[in-house]
């Protein structure tokens, strides 16, 4: 975070905040009397898996500006265990705890 002034940050936060509010308000008020086109509903259904996946995978297999596909990358086994826990338990807390536990165990062993 270099060369960024406090004003820039506040502007950014308000743009995202207002934009997000308008997305939330969209059909509750702004287009309340309009039917949502079926194609839009179907497209939007894929926003959560696509957006979240784009945030998840790079955080696991990249490091310091490069790829980290190796056994020494402790985040790979941690993510695999956490993925299994997430699917089986559907519980955020258990997923975070199992992933962090494997990560720390791996770090302690290596």
């Amino acid at each position: 975070m270099t060369d960024i002034t406090a004003w820039h940050i506040w502007t950014l936060l308000f743009i995202i905040g207002i934009g997000t509010f308008l997305l939330r308000l969209s059909f509750i008020q702004l287009f309340a009397d309009r039917q949502v086109p079926a194609a839009i509903t179907r497209l939007l259904r894929f926003v959560p898996p696509a957006a979240l996946s784009a945030l998840i995978l790079p955080a696991i297999v990249t490091q310091d500006g490069g790829y980290a596909f190796s056994l020494f990358n402790d985040r790979i086994p941690a993510a695999m265990i956490a993925a299994i826990v997430a699917v089986l338990t559907r519980n955020t807390l258990y997923t975070i705890c199992s992933g962090m536990a494997v990560l720390w165990l791996y770090q302690a062993l290596l």
Partner: peptide, 28 residues
């Protein structure tokens, strides 16, 4: 690292059909 773990907890249980899986895999 808790950040991607949190996202996994939100996303993975909701991958209920092949189209959603394909969306996630492609994007990832």
């Amino acid at each position: 690292f808790a950040v991607p773990l949190t996202f996994m907890a939100i996303m993975l249980p909701n991958l209920r059909d092949w189209a959603a899986v394909a969306a996630a895999l492609t994007s990832g």
